[in-house]
Amino acid sequence: MLSSMVISLFLILAKIIVVLTVLMTTVAYAVWLERKVVARIQSRWGPYLVGPHGLLQPVADGLKIFFKEDFVPSEVDRVVFWLAPFLAFSLALLSISVIPFGESITIAGEVIQFQITDLNVGLLFILAVTSLGVYGVALAGWGSNSKYPLLGGLRSSAQMISYELSLGLGLMGVVMLTGSLSLREIVEGQRGLWNIIRQPVGFLIYFTAAVAETNRVPFDLPEGESELVGGFHTEYSSLKFAMFFMAEYANIVTVSCLATLMFFGGWLGPVFGPPLLRALLPVFWFCLKVFCFLFVYIWIRGTLPRFRYDQLMAFGWKFLLPVGLLNVLATGLFLALRSS
């Protein structure tokens, strides 16, 4: 009994290490991908000097960030100033723990699921971590004790809490159709038909709200350079700034993972071949779909202009929220009529 507990603990630790390593590498190379894709959209090359096709650029950037001077302005609130980036970064990493990457693999009689932990309220857990992510931004803005960060922080936190509602409502349609909040069961429910066909409006609401939640173009006014210097991360430098940056990209990866799980069938795709291939192919399909979402995110960034703040808030409250509610209403009506 004790040895089985030790084995399961060891398995969980191994999973955490693997997932975190993959996530951090993805975050680093998402930055590279963004620079390359945005450059191509703008008819220029992007990084190509450091390594072939600039593939070692993230390594060079990482080294640069670690060696930069880390200065802290004198009037900041020390506790809050130090807390904010760590909070943002750890929360961004936390939501990856309930995301399932594939089915399961059987090694030496042990069935290992490709998921760190399978909560049966997994979707709500991700929403909870997203709700807590507002603190990283708000505290960074306030702790910097300076005008532009404060304005950027307040605007950004107001934007994030406004779009959280629409984020949840976009997902509610899928939850109603599936009847469960567990991410694994939601994917299993899509074996016949992907949810994008059953809930197209829900997907659009969710994706728009997700872009707004992660403070990306066209909703990135709180950190737009021309508007507010650097927004809430103006006064941060070196490692703490890197943590905000990585937190933003980790959030993008999480949101993309959630979109593929809820609407695009997660790891479902053609499987064939020997058992090992059968276990690993779903993971490959999942990663491919997440990569497509990352590309769409970067594509939108290179293409669209930025919303003004009042346009942004009006859109979130006056358009997205009512449409989300109507979607939930319509789904409920459909379910009630179908079961009667």
Binding site: V121, L124, L127, A128, S131, A138, L154, I161
Partner: peptide
């Protein structure tokens, strides 16, 4: 009470306390 635990974080820690923190600021 797993549902209530997550609701507590979403509503209480993630919305009501955000309101408190923003008002203090």
């Amino acid at each position: 009470a797993e549902f209530l635990a997550v609701v507590q974080v979403i509503v209480y820690a993630g919305a009501i306390m955000v309101l408190f923190v923003l008002v203090i600021m």
